[in-house]
């Protein structure tokens, strides 16, 4: 599904050049559940951004469903993102003055300008928040907010779900619930890639990719 060939990523920080990813070769198949781990600053988030087509590699090629996306422009990348990829963020990023329902519907709105209510209610049920669809995110706990964010990631039926430290702000009980949801998504055929520090979380993945200093280590 995704193929990375000799991916490099440089950042410039003032006059300094940071080599965040070095010669990454990686193949991800449809339906995998992958955990990316590594020390802080090792390049996990950078890799996830490139996998999610939100940032471009400085060198190398990335094939998404067989298409080389390295040379695509912003609007084409946006299109792939909204049709095929769902994102879950560590800080949830819900919009406080929109209801839970509207937050979940956001990707559908940006995609087709209209909302499939049935699908949203189905997702609410999936994340066990059917009763709270009218609430504002401000009235929810951290665990509930992350479940809303998971539902939002699924709004457009993505093939790939990417999550950067999705449980980083949650206690162990909520971590478990989120993890179960991710496993369930994966069970239904969606490819899931999770960046995590948490070995407990990583241990549930089919495959663990360890990164150190911008390189994949085996």
């Amino acid at each position: 599904m995704i193929l990375l060939k000799k991916i490099n990523k440089y950042y410039t920080r003032g006059s300094e050049i940071v080599h965040a990813l070095r010669e990454i070769n990686l193949e991800i198949s449809r339906g995998e559940f992958i955990a990316i781990t590594g020390k802080s600053g090792s390049g996990k988030t950078t890799l996830l951004q490139i996998l999610g087509l939100v940032d471009k590699a400085s060198g190398g090629n990335l094939y998404f469903n067989g298409i080389d996306v390295s040379s695509l422009g912003d609007s084409n990348l946006s299109k792939i993102r909204r049709e095929k990829i769902g994102f879950i963020f560590q800080q949830f990023h819900l919009i406080p003055k929109l209801s839970v329902f509207e937050n979940i519907a956001l990707p559908q709105f940006f995609h087709r300008r209209k909302i499939d209510k049935e699908r949203i209610f189905q997702l609410l049920k999936f994340v066990h928040l059917s009763e709270k669809w009218k609430n504002s995110p401000e009235q929810l706990s951290g665990g509930e907010m992350q479940r809303v964010a998971i539902a939002r990631a699924l709004a457009n039926n993505p093939e790939l779900v990417l999550a950067d430290e999705p449980t980083g702000n949650l206690d162990s009980e909520n971590t478990e619930r989120v993890l179960e949801l991710l496993l369930k998504i994966n069970y239904e055929g969606v490819t899931v890639i999770v960046v995590t520090h948490d070995m407990e979380v990583a241990s549930r993945a089919q495959r663990i990719i360890r990164i150190s200093d911008g390189r994949i280590i085996l």
Binding site: V54, S78, F89, Q91, H93, F110, R152
Partner: peptide, 16 residues
């Protein structure tokens, strides 16, 4: 900035 970043990630175009 983060919120707009999120919108962009979930599919909003620059014009949106």
């Amino acid at each position: 900035i983060k919120e707009f970043g999120m919108m962009r990630a979930v599919g909003a175009s620059r014009f949106d």
